[in-house]
């Protein structure tokens, strides 16, 4: 029972700050502080860190995952999840490799990657919406299925006959130290922010995530929205696959193995509720940079990759536990 006025106001004021600047931005501000602290730590830890090229290199380890996280964030806000994204990256990469192997031209290679991504996402979407199944189980299934198809096609082999021009997606720079990958991520982040925060489609994602029934009663086509979100998630996995494949210059069936965990962590760290209904794109973007800085910082300390997962897992649990602990302490 917050502020209810006794006498009727002639006109209700509009204060968007009450919502945006309040709960949401507070989380994002906190995250930003964490990011700055990590930045300073890294800068103190090594003199090379402040070199623009070092900074630029540091972005490569998270931009591809972050691109997928943008789409997964939308899914999670709508109350669903996609654990198959990393397998979609692998499947798309293998499809591209196969096309490259028979000498397909560059546009066809890229189009294949994107199309396979959308198709794989659409399969997830159809199964989840047509049978009203929990997306966590379905995407655990397709996680195995998509990666498994990769193994069938490639076995323990490797595709590496990519045309030289293919390298631009993962190895080129658009301006000075700004890589093609980073630039793409920033542009996509802006597009996703607009989609989620400024369009009717984005509004219906929030409505569905908070109260699916009320959304349905309001005439929102819940199944269609969810289907499209799964397609979008597949598409972004396809985009990430193009960049990753281009950056590595080769495809093995284990490509992007285990990424789903880091992507979900990024999304949850960004303030998206795993139960659906709340979260923002700026939050996810900041979380992506924070995770990049953590990984980079640990790398400076010569911490091997698998140990970084301890840090990432702890951050994930700590971040969702913190509000509950604070609420318990307050009571």
């Amino acid at each position: 029972m917050t502020e209810e006025r006794a006498d009727p106001p002639a006109d209700l004021p509009f204060r968007d700050r009450g919502r945006l600047a309040g709960a949401l931005l507070r989380w994002e501000t906190l995250l930003l502080f964490v990011g700055v602290a990590l930045f300073i730590f890294n800068a103190l830890a090594t003199p090379y860190f402040l070199n623009p090229w070092t900074l630029s290199d540091a972005t490569f380890n998270f931009t591809e995952k972050a691109i997928i996280a943008l789409a997964v964030a939308l899914l999670v806000i709508s109350g669903e999840i996609d654990l198959s994204v990393a397998s979609i990256v692998a499947l798309a990469s293998i499809a591209m490799g196969a096309v490259a192997e028979i000498g397909g031209p560059l546009p066809v290679i890229v189009a294949t990657g994107l199309a396979v991504g959308v198709l794989a996402g659409a399969v997830n979407g159809v199964i989840v919406t047509a049978f009203a199944l929990p997306s966590i189980v379905v995407t655990i299934g397709t996680l195995s299925l998509y990666r498994g198809i990769g193994y069938i096609v490639l076995g323990d082999g490797v595709f590496k006959n990519y045309p030289p021009e293919f390298a631009i997606f993962g190895q080129s720079y658009v301006w000075w130290v700004i890589s093609f990958e980073l630039a793409s991520f920033l542009v996509l982040a802006v597009l996703f922010a607009i989609l989620l925060h400024k369009t009717p489609f984005g509004r219906s994602i929030y409505a569905i995530g908070n109260n699916t029934l009320a959304a349905r009663f309001a005439g929102i086509r819940v199944e269609r929205v969810k289907f499209l979100l799964f397609c979008l998630s597949g598409l972004m996995a396809g985009v990430a696959s193009v960049m990753l494949t281009s950056r590595l210059g080769s495809t093995r069936p284990t490509i992007a193995f285990g990424w789903e965990l880091e992507i979900v962590t990024m999304v949850v760290l960004g303030g998206v509720s795993i139960l659906g209904g709340s979260g923002s794109i700026p939050g996810v973007v900041i979380a992506a940079f924070v995770m990049g800085l953590i990984t980079f910082g640990l790398g400076l300390l010569n911490v091997p990759g698998v140990v970084m997962s301890v840090a990432i897992g702890s951050v994930l649990i700590f971040v969702i536990a913190l509000p509950r602990i604070l609420a318990m302490v307050r009571r």
């Binding site: 698998v306 140990v307 897992g313």
Partner: peptide, 25 residues
């Protein structure tokens, strides 16, 4: 974590999946 903090099991165990694995190293 699930009982006392009421956290969703899937997130908790995704986290410990990574933590326990890293602990091996």
């Amino acid at each position: 974590l699930v009982w006392l903090l009421g956290l969703p099991a899937i997130v908790v165990t995704l986290g410990t999946l990574a933590i326990y694995r890293g602990m091996i190293y």
